[in-house]
Write a protein that binds this DNA or RNA. Structure first.
Lengths: 140, 140
DNA sequence: TGCTAATCAACAAGTCGTGCTAATTAGCAA
DNA sequence: TTGCTAATTAGCACGACTTGTTGATTAGCA
């Protein structure tokens, strides 16, 4: 994701207004590795700006997603999560605590076999599920 | 997935009753490569057995999933899909028409890098998105 | 300054899936 | 064959997540 300052410029270029709400969300996402949902981001935002609406958070996240500034990750665990890391990366997910981390896989592009003649791959998503070190210690 | 006959035996072993509804669902899933949702499976089932309820379809699919006889695949595209193929395989999804096909990736297990010391991977899911040959022809 | 987008509250709706209840049906073990 | 009990059904509701709408207010920015 671009820096909050760069996003301000991009929003202006696109004719979007740079509101305090949007700027707050830019800052909360910047360098955020927690893979927050719209809801959790809203909670943090509301602490700093009481009165901000969940609707606005959803709205701004959609805009950022459409602009390619955040990744939209759906792990099938309820809510969609947002990732300001838009590098070509993948995810590991702890089945126990739900924590998500970014990982890099360098064997890509992957080869596959199957009844899919002529399929043009545009993107590949890889999710590793298992147990994180923390949870392994707790259960031991 | 096991054959309908084997599933009948497994259900009996587990103390589950073998009802016509369940048997119908077994047959509809057997060899099914369409990755149906509960809803689409229900529609087909209802043609052959008017009166079957969507509730029962959900119920039976949950049982099969819990028994490991079908895979539960969530592509983030709305409803969960079910796959009677429980081999170690992955999926390609056409972004245009939504069709899903099974594919096999032989480079697994994949290596990755990231801040995930001590993470124990239990499973890996790979989804290739893009455009299928059909859709490519239509848009050309 | 003024146009217009953005925000907000409040409410609704849509999708997917599950929970509940009460009545009926029917599998299957003894 | 009987009888216990699970399964099914209809019908309704709810919960989570997300988006739509409306109408009033605020405020960005040319």
């Amino acid at each position: 994701m671009k820096t909050p300052e760069e996003l301000v410029a991009r929003f202006r270029e696109q004719g979007y207004k740079v509101t305090p709400q949007r700027q707050l969300i830019f800052r909360l996402l910047n360098g955020n590795t927690a893979h927050p949902t719209a809801e959790t981001l809203y909670e943090v935002a509301a602490e700093q700006m009481p009165g901000i609406s969940l609707r606005t958070v959803y709205q701004t996240l959609s805009e950022l997603s459409a602009m390619g500034e955040v990744q939209h990750i759906d792990l099938g665990s309820g809510a969609v999560r947002f990732d300001p890391n838009v590098d070509d990366h993948h995810h590991v997910v702890c089945s126990t605590c739900g924590v998500v981390h970014d990982v890099y896989v360098n064997q890509t592009p992957l080869q596959f076999e199957g009844d899919v003649e002529g399929f043009a791959v545009h993107s590949t998503r890889i999710v590793f599920s298992g147990e994180c070190a923390q949870c392994a210690h707790l259960s031991a």
